[in-house]
Design a protein around this nucleic acid. Structure first.
Length: 461
RNA sequence: GGCCAGGUGGCAGAGUGGUUAUGCUGCGGCCUGCAAAGCCGUCUACGCCGGUUCGAUUCCGACCCUGGCCUCCA
């Protein structure tokens, strides 16, 4: 069951071919570090990919890297380095950041620059069928040649012209026409083409890479909500028109925005949160949980309070897992999560409710009175976590936190000294030691078989 | 102006025509030498006004408000 932007309703997902399910998600343009808004679709479609793989024998998930774009050219010019340096640096960073968020690699990760000949062929087909025209070294797509243009975004071209706020380039036949190919001037990147030396327009790479790696028609195509128009609308136009009218994608999924303190994240507001930076202070798992804590189609508000909240929730669950294994022996993931969990996740990726189910199971685990119940509950928690990319760390290691800069020997000495003091019922001294450690950011927990310590929340978020 | 979302308890955030979401916080309790951790309990939730209904937060209509897109953007 998936919400389809095209139909504006939830639909039962029926693949064209259950033996080969295809998913395409718009990946990053590599001109800068990924911000948390880029991470949201990466995490969501990673989860969708995991779910599909559970249900279908073969799932091909393509997530592209756009490595030819004017923003890359600008970044290269500013930093006075070749564009390849920029695209290499930030695609590497993207991989590292996404890996930290538990995002696996897609089946294929095509790059725009590896598909220039195919792009040229697609443009030629569009020219031949009069869906495109050439002017001064530019090739433009003629939106009037495609009757269904605007269907995905629910737009009427006439109305859009009336409300247009942007000056239209002289050479366009219709204000909505968009560039398929444009001339380049060094140091801009360029390739030889029938229309001179130049480079592809934005939208084209996704159409071509879908065609190349997944086929003319894909099952699911996804991306951020802001891509609905014009990016995906234009992709549809190009693909349908160059494929003799064949459907481009059956299901369209779009994720909502990440806002920061209720405001849309944007460069102009200076409130973009870069994953690379967030990871310096926050484990990727916390970021992932937070990204999954709201439904993917809803806006997600990012704040320090939210980060703290998620941190505490995760700590509690790891704590329950740790206590369970020390009380009932080692636990491992069950074959599958609970039915409730799967059901809700399969209902248009209802991750908040799925996490609620996971929390319910964790509570059952904490309340488990015997080993059998405990192992069963722990198995469900771990299986659910595995599917969502959460709770795969060793609980003890997670709770100990980052021990860098912590003098473990000194802590142990103090704990031993405190144990002696407690033995002698010298609680004044014992509490003194506990306060001293707290001052160092260390919290003590007395348990049946001794005393364990962890870093205080404040130092770990 | 056009199009599209959404307004839920202190906060975050699901969901449902009649029954506990879940998490975080606060408060009370169990446990503890005291704590911490964990557990239990708890805090008169569904923007406003009509309508349908035995019954609406949930369906229908009007209204108010918020956000997004229409230009590069996940």
């Amino acid at each position: 069951m998936l919400y389809n932007t095209l139909k504006r309703e939830k639909q039962v997902f029926v693949p064209q071919d259950p033996a080969r399910v295809t998913l395409y998600a718009c990946g990053p343009t590599v001109y800068n570090y990924a911000h948390i808004g880029n991470a949201r679709p990466a995490v969501i479609f990673d989860l969708l990919f995991r779910l599909l793989q559970q249900r279908y024998a073969q799932v091909i998930y393509a997530r592209n890297i756009t490595d030819v774009d004017d923003k890359i050219n600008t970044a290269a010019a500013e930093q006075k380095v070749p564009i390849e340096v920029i695209s290499k640096r930030f695609s590497d960073a993207y991989h590292a950041d996404m890996a930290a968020l538990g995002v696996g690699l897609p089946s294929v990760e095509p790059r725009a620059t590896d598909h220039i000949p195919n792009m040229i062929r697609m443009i030629e087909r569009l020219l031949e069928s009069d869906h495109a025209y050439e002017v001064d070294g530019h090739v433009l797509f003629a939106v009037e040649s495609y009757a269904d243009y605007g269907l995905l975004s629910g737009r009427d071209m006439q109305e859009m012209i009336a409300g247009a706020r942007v000056e239209v380039a002289e050479f366009k036949r219709h204000p909505g026409d968009f560039v398929l190919w444009k001339p380049s001037i060094p140091p801009q990147p360029g390739w030889d083409s029938p229309w001179g030396w130049g480079r592809p327009g934005w939208h084209l790479e996704c159409s071509v890479m879908c065609e190349e790696h997944l086929g003319e028609t894909v099952d699911i195509h996804g991306g951020g909500q802001d891509l609905v128009f014009p990016h995906h609308e234009n992709e549809i136009a190009q693909s349908v028109c160059s494929h003799g009218g064949n459907v481009f994608a059956h299901y369209w999924m779009h994720n909502g925005f990440v806002t920061v303190n209720k405001r849309k994240m944007s460069k102009s507001l200076g409130n973009t949160l870069v994953v690379h930076e967030l990871l310096k202070h926050t484990p990727g798992e916390v970021l992932r949980y937070l990204l999954l804590s709201a439904h993917y189609r809803q806006p997600l508000d990012w704040s320090d309070e939210a980060l703290v909240r998620v941190r505490r929730t995760i700590d509690r669950i790891y704590g329950v897992l740790r206590d369970a294994s020390s009380k009932h022996g080692p636990v491992s993931a069950a074959d599958s999560p609970s039915d409730e969990f799967m059901e809700t996740l399969l209902d248009d990726l209802n991750t908040p409710q799925a996490l609620a189910e996971l929390n319910n199971e964790a509570r059952r685990l904490a309340n488990a009175e015997n080993q059998e119940v405990a192992k069963q509950s722990a198995g469900k928690v771990l299986a659910a976590g595995a599917l969502m990319g959460l709770f795969q760390c060793d609980p003890q290691a997670w709770l100990a936190g980052d021990t860098e800069g912590v003098d473990e020997t000194l802590i142990q000495q103090l704990i031993d000294e405190r144990a002696v003091a407690r033995e002698n019922r010298n609680f004044t001294r014992a509490d003194e030691i506990r306060d001293q450690l707290l001052g160092m950011g260390i919290v003590l927990e007395d348990v049946a078989d001794g005393c364990r310590w962890r870093r205080a929340d404040a130092d770990r978020v």
